[in-house]
Simulated assay, not measured.
Amino acid sequence: MLPRVRSLALLMFFARMPPAATGVILTLHVAVTLDRGYGAAGLVGAAGTIGMGLGAPMMGRLVDERGLRAMLRVSVTATAVFWLTAPLMGYWTLLISSFAVGLLGVPMMSIGRQVITALVPDSQRRVALSVDSISVELSFMGGPALGVFVATKFSTNAALMFIGASLLVAGVLLYWANPPMVHEDEVVDGPKPRIVEWMRGRIVGVLVVCTGATVCLAGMEVSAIASLEHIGEQSWLGAVFFAMCAASIVGGLVYGGVKRAPSVLVLLALMAAFEIPVGLGDGNVLLLCLLLVPMNLMCAPLIAACGEQISRLAPPTARGLAMGLQGSAFTVGGAIGAPLAGVAVDRGGAPAGFAVVGVAGLVVAGVAWALARQRKPVATGVTMAP
């Protein structure tokens, strides 16, 4: 790995840990410290999710037009103010502010992918984006655990301020590093293409695949939790999620080393198909973990492949917007997958949750395939079909 890529990848790993912990910390703070219950906590989380879905493309466009530092000045300020003052907020203030910080917050996931794209030549992007996907998995393994430790050892107020201080430090370091957001070999002179000139066919198909991926993943998490609660084995939840993340990391390592990688459509179809039978492990923790492995082997490769495709299909001068739209697609998928699985679980138990979300993933893959059939030229000649 290139020296500068290595140091920035390490920075992004730590910068992504606080955002990974925000959901669980806000949930604990609202439900326990403010004593408003988990329903109210879910509304705060939903407000933040909607804000992020709307804000990621906006922040990405700001990067395209004004540069990374201009975006960080806005985002880091808004983020630090929210998290450092959150312990002083009542519930309704927290609810409204959660949406605002989602709208203006630092899109660490999108920034990391765009930095990798800018620093690594096209021939090495698959490996670099695979490593980045593995880094995301590690952040989501370590971030929530560290946040819960602070919240339980001290208080949720301390955890909120810890997140704020961590994001402030990460933002300042990223501002100081100021990595390029466009590769040095890419042409950025001349008039910028309008969004209608490149947002069509294949790139829309990739965004649809991103949505389908998080439909499957969010539904998997809800169904897995329901399965463990059904047999009274909630204490094994950490082990189950560790198995998911470990499988994803292995998949990312394999994907980064193959010469000819499967397409995003194939990866999504495999993930969705492997999710359908996971419900057979309902009632048996070990079997559930084993059945979750195949679908999660596709997770990091699918995220990396989507980032690789978008980096090629979007024009360099609009890549921040495209990466932001990818983040929004992930957010939309999570917002669909979790309640879809929840309704299925309520009616048919955890096996129904896995099956329904898996079928939904296959349907989304079909929609993306239809979009990929459109052969109108976009930024490059890369195809999404297998």
Results as ranks from 00 to 15, higher is better:
residue 359 V to E: 02
residue 367 V to K: 07
residue 321 L to D: 02
residue 344 A to G: 08
residue 334 G to C: 11
residue 348 G to K: 13
residue 371 L to C: 02
residue 313 L to Y: 01
residue 337 G to Y: 11
residue 316 P to I: 14
residue 368 A to M: 01
residue 312 R to V: 00
residue 319 R to Q: 03
residue 320 G to Q: 10
residue 315 P to Q: 13
residue 316 P to R: 09
residue 351 P to K: 09
residue 328 S to T: 15
residue 325 L to M: 10
residue 346 D to C: 08
residue 360 A to E: 01
residue 304 A to T: 15
residue 366 G to V: 07
residue 315 P to M: 10
residue 312 R to A: 15
residue 341 A to Q: 15
residue 316 P to N: 13
residue 312 R to P: 08
residue 333 G to F: 07
residue 349 G to P: 00
residue 321 L to T: 12
residue 357 V to L: 03
residue 367 V to S: 00
residue 362 L to T: 05
residue 346 D to T: 08
residue 344 A to K: 02
residue 328 S to M: 13
residue 302 L to T: 05
residue 352 A to G: 01
residue 328 S to L: 10
residue 338 A to D: 09
residue 316 P to M: 13
residue 345 V to F: 04
residue 336 I to Q: 00
residue 344 A to D: 02
residue 350 A to T: 12
residue 323 M to P: 01
residue 325 L to E: 02
residue 356 V to F: 12
residue 336 I to K: 03
residue 309 Q to S: 15
residue 314 A to N: 10
residue 345 V to I: 11
residue 320 G to Y: 15
residue 365 A to K: 04
residue 370 A to E: 02
residue 299 C to S: 14
residue 361 G to D: 00
residue 311 S to T: 12
residue 324 G to C: 01
residue 321 L to K: 04
residue 341 A to F: 15
residue 305 A to N: 10
residue 372 A to N: 03
residue 344 A to H: 04
residue 327 G to R: 08
residue 335 A to M: 14
residue 342 G to I: 03
residue 341 A to N: 05
residue 346 D to L: 04
residue 299 C to L: 12
residue 360 A to D: 00
residue 347 R to N: 14
residue 336 I to P: 04
residue 297 L to V: 11
residue 313 L to V: 12
residue 372 A to S: 07
residue 369 W to I: 07
residue 354 F to N: 01
residue 331 T to W: 13
residue 344 A to E: 07
residue 356 V to D: 06
residue 359 V to G: 01
residue 319 R to T: 04
residue 335 A to K: 08
residue 350 A to P: 02
residue 324 G to R: 09
residue 372 A to Y: 06
residue 345 V to Y: 08
residue 353 G to E: 03
residue 316 P to T: 10
residue 341 A to C: 10
residue 349 G to C: 07
